[in-house]
Structures are given as structure tokens and as C-alpha cells.
Design a protein around this nucleic acid. Sequence first.
DNA 1: CACGGTGATGAGACTTGGTCCCATCACCGT
DNA 2: ACGGTGATGGGACCAAGTCTCATCACCGTG
Lengths: 189, 189
Amino acid sequence: MARWQPHAPERLAVAALELFEERGYENTTVIEIAERAGLTKSTFFRHFQDKREVLFGRGSMTDLLAKGIAGAPAGAAPLEAVACALDLVGQEAFTPERREFAARRRTVIAGHPELQEREALKGLALVASMTDALRRRGVPGLTACVATELGALAMKIAYEGWSGTTGGADFGTRARQALGDIRAATALC
Amino acid sequence: MARWQPHAPERLAVAALELFEERGYENTTVIEIAERAGLTKSTFFRHFQDKREVLFGRGSMTDLLAKGIAGAPAGAAPLEAVACALDLVGQEAFTPERREFAARRRTVIAGHPELQEREALKGLALVASMTDALRRRGVPGLTACVATELGALAMKIAYEGWSGTTGGADFGTRARQALGDIRAATALC
DNA sequence: CACGGTGATGAGACTTGGTCCCATCACCGT
DNA sequence: ACGGTGATGGGACCAAGTCTCATCACCGTG
């Protein structure tokens, strides 16, 4: 019995990702995931709210983004504060050693609406967190919304590029590049 | 037995909304919804993919938005094409007689993460549909993304205002107003 | 009017996600 | 050696969702 080995949540996440890749999300039961990790269904649901969450539990991106915006230089414009937040995410979360895992995870999610649904909800939480953080800097409501929305788009573009290619630029520089392109594109709308 | 009465999907949707308001989403079973509509669980799942979908099945907003963008004047800028699409939505979908139902539905959704998740996914589909429609007009990819994202924000703001107040401006004018404000806000980012 | 085809419905078995309660086991300090 | 604490295993239980088959209403035809 593999009881009391540490890192149960991580073992469950790895087992889940492997099984989802092997037989697909919907052909994998929670019991099978738990068994591969040497645990049981009870323990799975003790660590994760539901079956989808096993791919999303890692780190609270919302806090990271809020912290990044709060820590931006005092005179920084809204979009510059967002860029600081994306830099922080690149340093703390989307690090090179997590790239491969992120890529595999992204492929699995792309193939299952149920998982895309969860990702979309997480995205809403990120947007809300960034908007709140900007408001706390004194940015007016609508301006904060717009800056956040553009920042979220930059984050999505940078994430796809970063996770989709081996080597190349790191997440932070990709995000800054995307933000610059987006800023230029707003003039053409 | 209430067999063979018409409009089964609509009866199910009304019954579901009533029950969700009375006892909450998670305290309502699919069997109870079906019974109130004079039907059974089998029939419920024949009309709706799952329990959440009973609040979202109505009309395909994606087609409406795509049609609105495709039908915009030839020389219209991306954001102007988006405004045309939002006008069309205001005329065809968010009509005054559907306002009350929309408001009740919005309140229920706001109280349950499971429903917000579905709504977030529907939102992604709307964004994808609008972006594709803009690209078919020859708008470059990134510009289309930005215009769509700003349009989605305007749609959200207009929808909240329209469904949240009795009387007042209709959806289309609210959307155009929001789009103007957003355009002004982009200059402050 | 009888008949058969079609399509929507009812009924119920079945799998799985998810909750809950309780017994069990390992670790740790005394 | 002993007891407390916290994570785990086990199993009952409910609801979501799938599947199959029987049933019923409607409609056209002879």
C-alpha cells in the first residue's frame, strides 16, 4: 500500500494527465486515476473539488497577477502595470521546467469541452482579480476593465506561444511583445 | 398525462427557472424539473444536453453575431462592424418582451459557479464567432481579436444594464454607448 | 374505417461523479 | 509505552447522464 507517501495532489495530477492522454478524459474514471497514484477515490476528492480540478489546482494565478499589479511602479500606466504582472507570472509560474507539463495539459484541455469550460471560468477569475487590483491603484472602472481585457488577450497569446514551442523566448518577453502588438492594433479598430 | 403538448423545451426551461429560483440550482433535480413540465427525465435529456443547458439552449447567438458582422457596410471599421452585430442582437434576441426572463435567468446564473462556467464557455464561442466573421471581412487576425474582445466587453456591459433595469434604453443603444466609452478608455491605457 | 409507418415519449437498468460517515493507520510528542 | 492528530480506506448513498426497449399519438394510404 502506497500510503503516506508525500505529494499526493501532485501524484494525482500526474496520473490524471497520463491517463487523459492515453485513453481520453471521458474514458478515464476517478477511481482509475486514484489507483495509478496509489490512492483511492475518497482521497482524490479530498484534494480536488471535482474531476476537472485535478488539471487546474496548481498555484493560484489570481493572487500572482494581483500581486504583480500592486507591485508595479507608482507612476505606471494601467497597461504597464499589467505587463509587470505578466512578468511576475513568467518568473513564478510559467517557468521553463514547467513548459512541457503545460503543453501536455493544454492539448488535453483543448480536446474536451468540459475542461474548456473550467478553463474559461478560471479565466474569468483572472480578469476579475486583475481589474480589482487596477482599481485599487486608482484606475477608473472602465479603464481598468479595458486594460485587463487587453492584458488577458496578451496572456493568452503569450501562453500559446510559450507552451507550444520548445526553446524560444520566455513567457515574460512574449507577453510584453504581445501587449505591444495589441496596443498597436487598438489604433486600427 | 401531459403528453404531446407542444413546446416541450420551452416548458422545461420555464419550469427549471422557477424551481431554481424557489429552491436553488443544486437543490433541484432534473426529475423535479421534468415533472413540473409534465414530462420525464428521459425527455429532458432528449431536449437538453445536460442540466445546465436548460438555461442556455435558447437561440444561437453566435450565428446572430456572425450575421451582423457580415452584414455591416462594406467600408465599416472593425469596431463599427461589431456595433452593427450588437444592434442586430438587440433587435432579434434581447427584445423588450424577453427582458424579464433574461433578468431572472441572470440572477440564477450569478448564484451558481456551475452555471457561470457554462456561461463563460458560451462567451468563448461568441468571441470565436465574431473574430472569424471579422477575419472573413479581411481584418487582420490580431486586430480582429482586439475588436472582438472590446465588443464582448461592450456586450457584457450593455446586457447587465439592459437586463438590470426596467424601462430605459434598449440593448442596441446601450451597446453603442458602451462601445464609445470603451473606445475613449483605450486611449487612457 | 382499418392499417401501418413515423416520431416523440415513458420506463427502467446501468455507469459514473460526487458526498458523507466512520473505521483505520501512521506519525509525533510526552 | 501511550494517546492525540491528521490523512487515508472503505462503503453506503444520491443525482447526473446514457442506453435500450416498449408505448402511444398522429398521419397518410387503401
